[in-house]
Design a protein around this nucleic acid. Structure first.
Length: 589
RNA sequence: GGCCCCGUAGCUCAGAUGGAUAGAGCACCUGCCUUCUAAGCAGGUGGUCGCAGGUUCGAGUCCUGCCGGGGUCGCCA
């Protein structure tokens, strides 16, 4: 697939190889750091390479002089990008050693042809080489409906997964169900209360430590429908487990439903309880023990303010400090059961056993302190064979027209994800969640995200797509103009600087996909789409002032077709970007 | 106190793994609707990139130390 930056970089490397072959450069130069990028200032040209500056030291030559030699070696070479073949570029050296390239319009026109030819697949990349990536996200505790913070993690994880797929990775989306801890017992007791309530008992206040939320009323009723009075007046030991399992299943249904409203699905749900039951945790800790990484010891008290009930006691510990963590971490609770951490080690090892060496976890920022120990555990269990990247999602602050929406989880009146999505729509929610870096707190204002103004990035981008669609509707011959036909248009007639500027921007999409995928940063797509939208709105308004810049020129069918090709190019790239976000482009607004 | 994240225009934020004169939107001025959606566009005002050192051809970006904000800190998940 055409990527002008990658294509030109090949040309630079070929020129360097030639210089080496002819003895003009020493053998064995490392060209890994040679980059071809758009210069920040367009006045410097279309492309720019740092080759001379990066190699100057190894060659022991002044960067400017080296740049001159490389530039000379470049000139006259044939560039191949899309269906373009030729020497349509000029190279020029600038201090302190940049080589700036200007491309003929024909090169850009070929990029547009490539976009039309590829359609939504434009930007698909092979850099992933089919490597298997496992991305675990959401993993919300199965104790209630999802809240907005979970929604952010869900969208970030899903978009990152889609981005990695686009970049050529084989991605598995996973959800880890934390169904083994004490919280499940609390859930079971809560549901049992609601169950008795459903059978006509008066239950009064929900005791401290149980889940008070109204959503469990229905779960209690469902249990009553299924099992009748079976669990009434029986000791807790008899019903705790079965009711817990019923409740977890019900909560997972709730969560899956919340997720489906966002258009998010998973390839696998992995249960902590089943890992424990299968003995995976025992095997895992056993392996650590065999490696001498488990011992019984007493931890130093934490620095600063001590918890009230702190007292030294011996624990089963994992030597996390050997792998970069600050302290060794406990694997067992005092009742002999595994800690959450022990289960999580087994789970991550299980991912590795299933063939994943690239692991990504998306967590809430409150788990920041957990990152190092998990990475340490992955390192220990896989002998460095797998890498774990953790994306921490900061808080979402809800506002309504500038007024903070107060939430209290304890009082059970927190705003659920479902309420928000029902109010603003999945498309808006998803896009807005990706307009900030994941580690930056995000303000979400109900009024602003649905506002129709430039202030609102979703609207701004969608409006550009709608305008492009509108042009196509207005084109008398639009019905005859599929993308394949438009690719055959006389694109050499696209010569206006604004038109070429848009193609330049569109041609940067493959490069953006690759860099965002490698950095695991889907939000970059949102900012890129805003740039594309801005360039298109600009040209649109130009056409208001100067009739000869309008897309549809009644008297000139050839020019009209060329411009429609450009408009389609814009629509394709916006749609391809939105597809990564799981957002549907709108045709009309 | 330890660790993690953040600190960029009055406000909200980008900044492509170290590139050239640091960019958008909002706000504030000034223009642009008989014409493909003015729900938009153009121009202007606005910066010691928290502070101080260091690394090198070159630092908002990497390293060290401070300052400020947030999060977190042994059997919660």
């Amino acid at each position: 697939m055409a990527d002008i930056f990658a294509d030109f970089r090949r040309l630079v490397v070929a020129a360097l190889d030639d210089l080496t072959a002819s003895g003009a450069l020493p053998p064995g130069l490392d060209t890994a750091r040679v980059a071809v990028e758009p210069p920040r200032d367009p006045a410097h040209g279309d492309l720019s390479t740092n080759a001379a500056m990066v190699l100057a030291r190894a060659v022991n030559e002044n960067p400017m002089a080296l740049a001159e030699r490389i530039a000379a070696a470049l000139s006259g070479r044939e560039l191949a990008s899309g269906d373009y073949r030729g020497a349509g570029f000029t190279a020029e050296v600038a201090r302190p050693g940049f080589i700036n390239i200007r491309l003929d319009a024909a090169v850009w026109q070929a990029q547009l042809r490539a976009i039309l030819g590829a359609g939504l697949a434009y930007g698909d990349s092979g850099i992933g080489r089919g490597r298997r990536v496992n991305i675990e996200f959401v993993s919300a505790n199965p104790t209630g409906p999802m809240h907005v913070g979970h929604g952010r993690g869900a969208v970030v994880g899903d978009a990152l997964a889609a981005l990695l797929v686009k970049a050529g990775f084989a991605v598995q989306r996973e959800y880890y169900i934390n169904d083994a801890g004490a919280q499940v017992d609390a859930l079971a007791r809560s549901v049992h209360l609601r169950y008795r309530e459903a059978l006509g008992e008066s239950i009064g206040e929900i005791p401290e430590g149980l889940y008070p939320g109204e959503y469990l009323v229905e779960t209690g009723q469902a249990l009553a429908r299924r099992d009748g009075g079976k669990w009434c007046g029986r000791p807790e030991s008899e019903w705790l487990r079965p009711v817990g399992e019923f409740a977890v299943a019900a909560m997972m249904d709730l969560i899956r439903d919340d997720l489906s409203r966002l258009g998010i699905g998973f390839d696998a749900f992995v249960s902590e309880r089943e890992l424990v039951r299968d003995g995976a945790v025992d095997r895992c800790v056993g392996a650590l023990e065999a490696a001498g990484l488990v011992y019984t010891g007493v931890l130093e008290p934490p620095k600063g303010k001590l918890p009230d009930d702190w007292e030294p006691r011996p624990q089963t510990l994992f030597r996390a400090t050997q792998f970069g963590d600050e302290v060794d971490r406990p694997l067992k609770k005092s009742d002999g059961s595994w800690t959450y951490f022990a289960g999580d080690i087994a789970y991550h090892y299980d991912k590795f056993r299933r063939g994943f060496t690239d692991l990504i976890d998306v967590w809430g920022a409150d788990h920041a302190g957990y990152v190092k120990r998990m990475q340490a555990a992955v390192k220990a269990m896989t002998g460095g064979g797998a890498a774990l990247d953790v994306k921490l999602c900061q808080l979402v602050n809800l506002f309504d027209n500038g007024v903070p929406v107060r939430m209290s989880k304890r009082a059970g009146n927190f705003v659920t994800l479902r309420e928000v999505v029902d109010e603003v729509g999945a498309n808006v929610f998803r896009f807005i969640m990706l307009t900030r870096r994941n580690d930056q707190a995000l303000d979400f204002d109900f009024a602003k995200v649905t506002e129709q103004s430039k202030d609102n990035p979703v609207f701004y981008v969608q409006y550009a797509h709608a305008r492009a669609s509108s042009v196509m509707r207005h084109a008398a011959e639009a019905a005859l103009l599929g993308d394949a036909a438009l690719a055959e248009a006389a694109l050499e007639r696209l010569t206006d600087s604004h038109e070429l500027a848009i193609i330049r921007l569109l041609a940067g999409w493959p490069r953006l996909v690759e860099s965002a995928a490698e950095a695991h940063e889907p939000h970059r797509v949102a900012f890129y789409l805003q740039e594309v939208a801005a360039a298109f709105h600009l040209l649109w308004t130009k056409g208001k002032d100067e009739a000869n810049l309008r897309f549809i020129i009644g008297a000139d069918r050839g020019l009209t077709r060329a411009r429609l090709a450009l408009v389609r190019g814009v629509a394709i790239v916006i749609a391809a970007g939105l597809a990564v976000f799981g957002v549907e482009p709108v045709e009309e607004m």
